[in-house]
């Protein structure tokens, strides 16, 4: 069980996040919807320890507080982030990227199994293991990014706009892959502009506006909500 409680972040005088609380259970997929600049990426970075949180909030994994730890310790406890724009090691090979994913001590024992699992999920990466990451196609780079995160044997996987820049076919494949990742009891927090497909695989969803949570419901209810449809699903009126 992942719990982020009362997370607030300020960039200088600009309040980017205000009192955001999110929970994700093991094996659950949770979508976070929000417009550009609503604070979605900031939230993920705050959880990963990459931006400073205001005092008063906290992040806990299975009841243990990890909010104050430095980024590498947070990964060590089992939270992995796939950032927007993938954030690969551009000049390193596919296999080096994946090996680095298994950097946390906790992940090393199961490194070879995890590698097998990742290559099983993305067979094309097995063929390209010696290729330098920046020479891959966008879809393949996304696979490396997700694969690298999975190599850390996370309990909680956070993805920031993973479908950005992918063809519709690859998108569908990506979401199918996430559904398979969940079967390993990994909690998934999915920040997506592709609200339709993410709500289709998600169990629950949060709405984020101007740095605040403005709604929380089951994914099915959110998908049926006319205001959500108007804002995020591109529907003028309910079908």
């Amino acid at each position: 069980m992942f719990e982020a409680r009362h997370i607030s972040v300020a960039y200088g005088k600009h309040r980017a996040l205000e009192d955001v609380s999110v929970t994700v259970a093991a094996g659950e997929i949770v979508a976070m919807l929000g417009a550009n600049g609503a604070g979605k990426s900031t939230f993920l970075k705050a959880v990963a320890g990459l931006v400073a949180k205001d005092a008063g909030g906290g992040v806990a994994l299975d009841g243990r507080e990890i909010g104050a730890l430095p980024p590498h310790e947070i990964v060590e406890r089992g939270i992995a982030l796939v950032p927007e724009g993938r954030g690969l090691f551009d000049d390193l090979t596919v296999i080096e990227n994946l090996t680095l994913g298994a950097y946390p001590r906790r992940a090393r024992a199961s490194e070879s199994e995890n590698l097998e699992r990742v290559l099983d999920l993305f067979p094309v990466l097995a063929q390209r293991r010696r290729q330098v990451a920046r020479t891959l196609s966008g879809g393949q780079q996304q696979m490396v990014a997700i694969g690298t995160a999975m190599m850390s044997a996370p309990f909680m996987l956070m993805l920031d706009e993973p479908s950005l820049g992918l063809s519709p076919m690859l998108c569908t494949e990506l979401f199918r892959t996430l559904a398979r990742v969940r079967e390993a009891r990994v909690g998934i927090l999915l920040v997506e502009q592709n609200a339709k497909q993410s709500l289709a695989i998600a169990d629950r969803g949060y709405l984020l506006e101007n740095g605040r949570i403005t709604g929380e419901d089951s994914a099915a209810n959110l998908a049926d909500d006319p205001s959500v449809q108007a804002a995020y699903l591109g529907a003028a009126s309910p079908a």
Binding site: E73, D91, L100, G101, P104, S152
Partner: peptide, 16 residues
Amino acid sequence: RAVSVSPEASRRVGID
């Protein structure tokens, strides 16, 4: 080498 390529990505995979 990872830190040399990208400190940010390094932090994310758990490198100190």
